[in-house]
Write a protein that binds this DNA or RNA. Structure first.
Lengths: 212, 212
DNA sequence: GCCAAATTTTGCACACTGTGCAAGAAATAT
DNA sequence: ATATTTCTTGCACAGTGTGCAAAATTTGGC
């Protein structure tokens, strides 16, 4: 039982400590999601999550500040991926193009069904909604920082934050619209979401001149 | 003590019941704001608010769901005003123009210093930030509804929600930028905020083509 | 393999939150 | 004046979130 990790990561010393933490985190998040599916968004307790994940109540709070935060792991990772995707765009590329490309790419990759679920759940759970909004807000702050750095002083703070906010609003609108469609209809969910992302961001680029 | 209200409102039967509720609400909100200023954003309890407002803890919860909600009365009323201002715009007016005008008008009228304060407080209090984001979200939903109604089916849901989200993001960015400036510098805060609103929304109308 | 140091988990205590309920107080209607 | 509606309050109760110190686990040196 010693060679658990000799396939993928060369310079990654994944000791048992870190691996255990990752596993625990995942177990908690999964437990929370299962409970949300079973009993509904705001209708279960931290104790239930902890029990299902096989940890103590106290340990749960070592990983998350609230039940809703545990549910949003998926949202966070989506945004995380979008950010890293953006930061890997070529330097000269126009901002909006880079953002569109990054978001569209992310829409393909991610485990999308869950996001639709979460979006819909949030409609009936204020606490969950607040947590999601907060996650987007944190992502926005990070993207603003990245873009500011990317433009190297070539734009006012107001410009950057208005731009980033608008882009994320369009992405959110796209996800909202996408999630509102009945969940498991046509085959490629990724394509459907990507299409809407591109569409919404094109509208933005147009300055919303044409009510398409 | 019988003619307490015979000066301004002709057809408004403001009974003692309603007036008391209004007063209580205001007293609670003020108490919360005072405490936030004194002890810091997340560093006081509901009991303290209730005590200072002269009501029972239970009554507090009859008016607000949380301490943060009580703090956000001001934010809510700002958005409320913006919405009603928008809905009074002439029918033929282009959407973006109407929204710009509505927000700019609201920026002048409102009791602005408090908003700056709240924005800055939110930076150090996750719970308050979430509450504010939630307030904006609720306003967004209402505006989307208003705009949809205003356009009478002439635009896709995606267009409307992307547009409204972007506009509000710009407004938020403007307030953020405005609040970040040192609080009490030049005379007319309203003008400063209005200017930024118009600026940010002009950028939006440009499709953010020029990094001004 | 075994022990010491570092880190993580856990139980416990404690202050605080948010809500249902029923009794009491205040405003309104008759 | 009194009956009725509406608001306030106290109480109970389940749940939250965090500090703290005692286990339990992992890591590294020998």
């Amino acid at each position: 039982m010693q060679n658990v990790e000799d396939a993928a990561e060369p310079p990654e010393p994944v000791g048992r400590r870190e691996q255990n933490k990752i596993d625990t985190r995942r177990a908690i998040a999964e437990a929370a999601l299962t409970l949300a599916r079973t009993k509904g968004a705001g209708s279960f307790t931290v104790d239930q999550i902890a029990a299902r994940a096989g940890v103590s109540r106290r340990t749960f709070f070592n990983y998350f500040h609230s039940a809703e935060e545990a549910l949003n792991v998926s949202t966070e990772s989506f945004l995380e991926l979008a950010i890293s995707s953006f930061s890997r765009r070529p330097a000269g590329e126009p901002l909006l193009d880079a953002m569109i490309a990054a978001l569209a790419a992310t829409a393909k990759v991610q485990d999308l069904a869950v996001h639709g679920e979460l979006f819909r759940m949030a409609a009936g759970s204020p606490e969950l909604l607040r947590a999601q909004l907060h996650a987007w807000e944190r992502a926005e702050a990070r993207i603003i920082e990245a873009v500011t750095h990317h433009l190297q002083g070539g734009a006012s703070p107001l410009y950057v934050s208005a731009l980033v906010g608008s882009v994320l609003s369009c992405a959110k609108a796209a996800m909202h619209d996408w999630a509102a469609d009945d969940p498991d209809r046509h085959g490629d969910a990724g394509a459907a979401l990507e299409e809407r992302m591109v569409l919404a961001l094109s509208m933005l680029r147009d300055g919303f001149a044409h009510p398409a």
